[in-house]
């Protein structure tokens, strides 16, 4: 069956008509038909915020070690390289996936979906829905590195040796927060929009 005329409420998962007179979900009364244009712009704005935050997250140290008066900082990439050199490959791969691959993949997928909402692309409707589903579910996994830093800073907390989270950790945590918000504000109707012939400008 085609679902061009139906829309799924993202809060209570019920089926609603997709037309101009329906503004609220018929069961939970949450807004389901805000302007597509607003949804598009909000997603884009939050995504840009996240991408900007990703720069200090990589440049500033995520972790600082204070050892008998001497400080040494390590950034995300530096930490991964250090772990790789030490030979703990599984941990290095987990951190690499969680803090480099997942955020970048998420940026690219959301950018792709935003482009696909305006211009014609090769992927089918089904593919785009699946891409959005992946984007939503991989989001929180990038928090791993921040949590690890916090746990280490609690455990290595002696008078001689101390580990504490750096500026990079704050930027990184905020970056994850904003990418999640960005994915949440993306309206799934933007996906079907192009196929229906009226693109974002028309709404």
């Amino acid at each position: 069956m085609k679902n061009e005329h139906y829309i799924r409420c993202h809060i209570c998962e019920t089926v609603n008509y997709d037309n101009s007179i329906t503004h609220n979900c018929r069961r939970c009364h949450s807004k389901i038909n805000p302007s597509l244009h607003a949804s598009y712009n909000r997603t884009l704005a939050l995504l840009i915020t996240a991408i900007i935050l990703y720069i200090p997250a990589n440049l500033y140290p995520i972790l600082s070690t204070k050892q008998f008066g001497t400080n040494s900082d390590s950034t995300i990439l530096g930490g991964i390289i250090h772990l790789w050199e030490l030979g703990s490959y599984p941990v290095a791969i987990i951190i690499l996936v969680a803090s480099v691959v997942v955020p970048l993949l998420k940026f690219l997928l959301i950018i792709y979906l935003l482009i696909a909402a305006k211009y014609k692309t090769h992927s089918t409707l089904l593919d785009k829905h699946k891409i959005f589903y992946i984007t939503e579910s991989i989001g929180p996994w990038s928090m791993v590195d921040v949590f690890v830093v916090i746990i280490l800073s609690v455990l290595i907390h002696f008078s001689g040796v101390q580990i504490y989270p750096g500026t990079g950790a704050t930027a990184f945590a905020l970056m994850v927060f904003f990418t999640m918000l960005s994915a949440l504000s993306f309206d799934t109707r933007l996906i079907i929009n192009y196929e229906k012939g009226n693109n974002v400008h028309a709404s």
């Binding site: 679902n3 139906y6 829309i7 799924r8 089926v15 829905h129 699946k130 589903y133 996906i191």
Partner: peptide
């Protein structure tokens, strides 16, 4: 509607 592929 399916949550993953939005099939009705």
């Amino acid at each position: 509607i399916c949550k993953k592929c939005h099939t009705l």
